[in-house]
Each structure stands twice: as structure tokens, then as C-alpha cells.
Design a protein around this nucleic acid. Structure first.
Lengths: 347, 347
DNA sequence: AGCTTTTAAGATAGCGTTACCATCAATCTT
DNA sequence: AAGATTGATGGTAACGCTATCTTAAAAGCT
């Protein structure tokens, strides 16, 4: 037996409509949801009662009862400040528009298996899908969950076509090609390149663009002009040391990361070189540091928040329509940002 | 006897958290809503379980049971990449645990009144409260909405005690004092200071800390050692030019911003000076650039995501309990990060 | 007509929380 | 020391709706 009613609010409920219409609550629900079999008479009686009482369904109750709300997980690298903001912004925008919720967790890139452990927590916590910022699309364990747990996922800026899971990002090969061509067009013929050491898609894709531009300009690939390292400032200092120590150093260096480029600029300054007068440098990503360096770096910008928004939207739409998400790569426009770090040798 | 379970999603519920923590569901609810009196032990056990399971309250259920749903607005500077991530992270964490929703909007700091216009949009869209990251707590129009629209708000890192609205941040004066003292203790007696030009709280608070440390060490305030500018890399170059052009330049420069400090390091390098051998430099904020410079900068770190989380939580708790939010400043611990940019002159 | 199949309508049991007590141990009276 | 007060904890029902199953009547079949 009911003890006390909690709500004093005179809000009209479905039960009141049912009573007024002389039918059961279920019938009212069925009418309102346009369900199968309701006779015309009852349907009209219900609608009349709804109108008279000014009934409006309670969204919260409906959501709770129909368990229709979507939740997607987003994993991010701890301490990855510059991208994170844009990433969250884009994801949240798409999630809000789709009435979905997002669950965020961070992992420590220095701990083996940390990302996978966090994904498992997300899965256990009941997410319906996953957003994978780089470099998570290269984690085989995580990607495997797609089939083993039938967990839809989409990768952000994968660096290269994956084939296994859907993704959204810029065309890295093309962007790299365009930036290299810009350097070539300014008359440089000895152009250094810093690639990533890892065997991931990115390192190869960006190098491919660099090589394509060289080839097109009739320049040979010179192994001594390619240096591999991790994308950190410290590694950039090593790269600078290497390039400037060559018997015949490059006149320009294109780096796969702004951190490295900034380090090279800094190192060169300490050697008394002028940038871009004595050495031209280009970066990639348009991280904050690219414009907090002097001279500011010519680089490539990818619209991170757009990429995140598009990917999230695509994932949610697929989830809603219960349709399979095809493992297609979707490309978003990038932008070559020309600033002052590349000298024009033609003059 | 339960017939069938309807939900297929293994979403983590409050009951599961209760079981994991070894308490009743009610206790979990009480912990999450900061209700009544829960012992520290239970409270921690619950929070631990929440973290482990990645629990997020079901908003629909909460709204239904409590007949309330909260939405708070967060305004951020467009393009403010490095802080934004941490800011969102903290805010979302608190919002999720409280089952609240957050509405995010950006404003253009270069357009007069842009922030106010965006706030109005938020208000019209029906937010129940507002989070104000710096420097919004200094916008009189926005703060006035607190009373005119009875809109609760809380400021982040206000830089100084406001008196008008509640806030959460570090004690800037104390942090500035501590960093200056660290420089003093290394034997420096001519210490330059870069303050912000604006008349906001921050510029004065940080300068006050600098002056307090000088005074304590028996050093005089020398006007020529204080330079004012905006917190940008370009301005930092001007500051460097100024300080190094003095007849009797400082041996150390403490900057109210890492951007400025990094610019000074860079400028000094180009002048052939060694850092910290010939010039010591310290920054403030521990922005990414502080560790992407060589040598890495000694600076002050504020836990932005914590600050945002605490503030959001405080706002939401007040909203739920329908209690007035007192205009108190709440201080969060800061951390002086000592790296390699300050020379020890005593040896 | 006697039987099975369809169909409208309703009964029942949750969905995941929180409000509102009831309980029992701990602390405080006098 | 016995009774009274507090305070932590949890049992129970309810929030307003929908999924699922059941029923009883209507319709279809041989």
C-alpha cells in the first residue's frame, strides 16, 4: 500500500490521461508511440484526453523506461594538453546534438597495456561505442574488441588507411606532399626530413608525401637526409645536432612534428644560425609551440575539433540506426599554414 | 519473481557500485550527493568503487526520482588550447558524478562584449549556473547577472580574492612569493619581474608576492627591474630586449607567464648568453612551452583540472541543496616546479 | 460446430535513482 | 546508570513511463 506520494506537482501523467479517457495506461502509451493495434475509437478518446489535460510526456521517465540513451567512450593520453581541448569540444558537440553521453578516461602512454585496461573499464561500464584518438587505432588488442565484443569504434586521424575500423582524419600523405612542395618551390634542393621511429602508419605516410614531392621535383632520396626519432623536444635537439653536423647539411628541414621543429630552431639559434636565413624549418600539426617560437613555424593544421565531431557523429548515427559502420576512411580538409620559417632561395 | 531483464547493456548502476563497495545503494547515493553523514571510510570505499567501475549516474533515472535536472554553462576563450583540455576534463568529471549536464560555448576575446553575449545565450537556453574561467570573473556585466537573474556562478583562478562571487584557485601571491624566494635563496640580488599590464587582480597579486620576497630578503624594490606587458611570446621578446639593454641587467628574471619566460630564453640564446649560466629565468603556469624550451623552465603549476572539478562540484552541490553559494575564495595547493633555468650563484 | 489463430486491451514488472522513514549503535544527558 | 538524543546506515516505495507477457474476445479454419 502506498505510503505517501512524493510529488505534489500537479503535473499531468500518463495515468491521469488513461483515467480520463477510460482506458488503461498501456493503451495511452501505445497511442502516443503510434504502436500497432489500437482501435480508432480508443485512439481518439486518448487524444482527446491528452488535449484536454495538456499532457506532455516526461522525458526522463521515457528515457529510463525505454533505455534508449547512448553512451560512448573516449580514451585520451594523460597530459596531452594541446589536442585534448579541441578533441573534447568536437566530441561533446556531436554528443549533445545526438542526445548521447560520453564517458572519458585517460591512460598513461608509458605503461604497457594501460590503454587496453582503461578500454576494458569503459566496456564494463557499459559504453555503446568507442572513439579512438591517435595512436590508439594501432593498438591491436583494442581494435580486436570490435569483433569480440561487437563494440563499434571509430579512429581519429589514423595517419593512414586502416582497413580494419572506420576513421576520420586528414590526408597526411597529401599534406606532407604539399608542404614539401612548398619548400621545393622556394628553391631548396637539400631538404632534410624527420620521421617517427615507430612502425605506425603516420611515419610512413608522411614520409611518402615528402618523397613524392622530391621525386616530382627531380630530386633524389638521400638516406642521410632522413632522421628518425620520437616526437619530443629532446629528440628534436638530437636531430638538430645530427643534421647540422653533416658535412653537407640541408638548407631546410621538414619535421613530422612541431616539437621537433621548434627544438631544431632553438638549437640552431644557439649555434648562431639565423632562421630562416641560414636554415629553414617546417613542422606539422600547428601545435601552440609552432606560433610560440621565433620565427613562427610554417606547418600543417588539422581541424581537430571538426575531425572529432564528424567521427563522433558518424559513430552515433550508426549506433542509432543499428547499422554496421563500414571501415572506411573519411578525409577532412587540412590547411598548410605558411609563416616565416622557410627562406626563399630564389631571390 | 523477476521475469526477464530488459536491459542488455551491462551498464554500471548504482547497485553494482554498492555491491563492490560493500555498502547499501542508499549510502552510495548519499555519498554522491554529499548528503547527510557518511563516514570517511565508507565514503572512500564508494569513491574507489566508482573510479574502478567507471560509474556514471543515469541522468534519466536521477531526473525522474528527484524531479530535478541540472545544467550549467561553461564559457571559454576561443583557441585557448592548452588550458581548455584540463578545464573541460575537470568540469566534466564533476558534472558526470553529479548527473548534471554542461553547456559549453566559446567567445572571442578580441570582440568587445562577445563574452557577455554568449553568457546571455546560455542563460536563455536555461542553465542553472555558470562556471567562469579567467579572466571572466572581471567582467562586471557578467558578474551582475548573479543578482539580476539570480544566477549562481563560480570563478576559476581569479588571481585575487573577489568578494563578489565565489571562486576556486591557487594563492597567486603565495606562489609568486615562493618562487621569488627560491631565486633569492640561490644568491640572486638583482631580480627582474615581468607583470601583466592589465589592471586585473592577477598582475597585482603576483607582483605583491614578488615584492614580499624581496622585502623579506632585505632587497629594495627597483622600478627599472619591473616591466609590464601582455602575456605573449612577442611581448616577451620586447621584455628581453629591455632587460638586457639595461646598464646593469638583472641576473634573474621572474615572469608572470611561461610564454614570456620562453621568449626571454630564446632571445638571450640569440645574444649568445647561456641559460642559466649568464641569465636565470622563471615562468608561471607550467604551460607546455615551459618544458619544450631548453633549459626547461622553473615555474609554478596549478592543477587546472582539479580547480575546475572542485569549482564545478561546489556549484552543483549548492544548486542541489538549494543553498546560497557564499562568495568565498577557496584555495587549492600549487606546486613550484624546479627545473634547470635558475643558476645557483652561491657556488 | 468445434477447433486453432489472430488481435485489442490490460496486468505486471521493471528502468536506476532518490525521498522518506526505521533501525540500531554510539554518545550525551541528569 | 538508565533514559534521551544524536548520527550513521539501509529498507522500501515511488518517480512516470515502456517491454513483455497474458488474457479474453474476435476471426478464421476444416
Amino acid at each position: 500500500m502506498p505510503r505517501t506520494r512524493r510529488s505534489f506537482s500537479s503535473r499531468v501523467t500518463l495515468d491521469m490521461v488513461a483515467q480520463q479517457a477510460g482506458v488503461s495506461p498501456m493503451t495511452v502509451s501505445n497511442v502516443l508511440n503510434d504502436k500497432a493495434n489500437v482501435t480508432k475509437g480508443k485512439r481518439e478518446a486518448v487524444m482527446k484526453a491528452v488535449r484536454e489535460l495538456g499532457y506532455q510526456p516526461n522525458r526522463a521517465a521515457r528515457a529510463l523506461a525505454s533505455a534508449t540513451s547512448l553512451r560512448i567512450g573516449l580514451l585520451h593520453r594523460d597530459m596531452d594538453s594541446s589536442l585534448l581541448g579541441q578533441l573534447l569540444l568536437g566530441t561533446l558537440r556531436a554528443a549533445n546534438l545526438n542526445g548521447a553521453e560520453i564517458a572519458i578516461r585517460s591512460y598513461d602512454p608509458d605503461v604497457e597495456g594501460s590503454a587496453y585496461a582503461e578500454v576494458q573499464t569503459l566496456v564494463r561500464s557499459g559504453v555503446d561505442g568507442l572513439i579512438l584518438p591517435p595512436p590508439l587505432s594501432e593498438d591491436a588488442d583494442i581494435v580486436a574488441l570490435k569483433d569480440s565484443h561487437h563494440l563499434p569504434m571509430i579512429a581519429l586521424a589514423p595517419g593512414s588507411e586502416l582497413g580494419t575500423i572506420p576513421s576520420v582524419g586528414i590526408d597526411d600523405e597529401q599534406a606532407s606532399y604539399e608542404l614539401t612542395r612548398l619548400i621545393v618551390n622556394k628553391g631548396h634542393t637539400r631538404i632534410g626530413f624527420v620521421r617517427f621511429v615507430s612502425s605506425n602508419g603516420l611515419s610512413q605516410t608522411r614520409e611518402a608525401g615528402y618523397l613524392r614531392a622530391l621525386k616530382e621535383a627531380g630530386l633524389k632520396r638521400e638516406p642521410e637526409l632522413i632522421w628518425a626519432g620520437r616526437p619530443t623536444y629532446e629528440q628534436g635537439l638530437l636531430a638538430a645536432e645530427y643534421f647540422l653536423g653533416l658535412a653537407h647539411p640541408p638548407t631546410a628541414i621538414f619535421c613530422s612534428s612541431d616539437d621537433i621543429a621548434a627544438a631544431i630552431v632553438n638549437y640552431a639559434h644557439r649555434q648562431g644560425l639565423r632562421i630562416p636565413g641560414d636554415l629553414s624549418v617546417a613542422g606539422f600539426d600547428d601545435a601552440p609551440i609552432a606560433s610560440q617560437t621565433w620565427p613562427q613555424l610554417t606547418t600543417v593544421r588539422q581541424a581537430v575539433s571538426n575531425i572529432a565531431e564528424i567521427a563522433t557523429d558518424r559513430l552515433l548515427k550508426a549506433l542509432k540506426s543499428r547499422s554496421e559502420l563500414l571501415p572506411e576512411t573519411q578525409w577532412v580538409a587540412h590547411q598548410v599554414i605558411e609563416r616565416q620559417s622557410i627562406a626563399d632561395l630564389r631571390r
